[in-house]
Amino acid sequence: MGYLTSILILGCINIVVVLGLSVLTGYTGLFSIGHAGFMAVGGYAAAIIYIRLHVPFALALPLGGVAAGLSSYIIGYPAFRGKLRGDYFAIATLGFAEAVRLLLNTTYPVIGGAYGLMGIPQKTNLPIALAVALLAFAGAQSFVRSQHGKNCVAVYDDETAAQMMGVDLLRTKLMALFISAFYAGVAGALYAFYMAYLSPSMFGISKSSDLLAAVVFGGMQSIIGPVIIAFVTVALPELLRFLLAWRLVIYGLLFVVMMVFRPQGLLGYRELDFGPGWRRATAAVASRLGKPRPPRGPQGPVEGTP
């Protein structure tokens, strides 16, 4: 039971990060190869405010997310301001993740440095992880259906055209980045309180690659596709242990094969749909969690919100 629970909890945590990354990469077209860096920021921030400032666990989770979100502006603002190509942003995220890891490694006297941060109580259990994952799912769903989400899709499709239609590029991109970093931060915090231990090496490049793989395989502009893959990429290595070492080789080759033959991914531009009942249920959850803003201007009703 314990083993299965642990897979489920790690799967839920992975789903939360991947949801955020899906908003950034799948919907806005911004490529992050350093998302583990935001997880690290969120995890460490939540753990430190819990241990040092005795902030309650329920508050430490969102605060970890906010810390990660704010830290994302360090790279977001410079990279987006000048309307630079996506490559600059991608390299900035990679640099950010490395910088975070190096900084954490040099903090031995304060938070353990490379030895890791110990003494975090184990607070995350299955109900909490599931609840957060569901909340995150509903939140992401309602975001991408809102006007802001549509702005993100417009930026993905054609930046110039989006700008002509009055989309504020800088604001839209920063918002997508903030949300995805916030999600990563919350997931990092959940992870910290589940493992009861943090070390900078947990948030290396291969973690970022795993996350990216979930979004790419799950599909662009889809929420449910990446979620499924995010869960599978946690559960599958447990079943196929003998393939663990070859995992990254297989991911890499699949990246290429997928881009050549099916670039939209598993469920690209599509959502799971089980008929009107399912649509009503998801819409009800979404609207309870934050009403999508009514469209501004003479566009008429938004098609995505039934």
Partner: peptide, 19 residues
């Protein structure tokens, strides 16, 4: 194809070769 796909493909090639 969009540049995003080129980037993903390139990352994939790099991940595969390095590993």
């Amino acid at each position: 194809a969009p540049r995003l796909f080129m980037m993903i493909s390139a990352m994939g090639a790099s991940m595969a070769i390095v590993n």
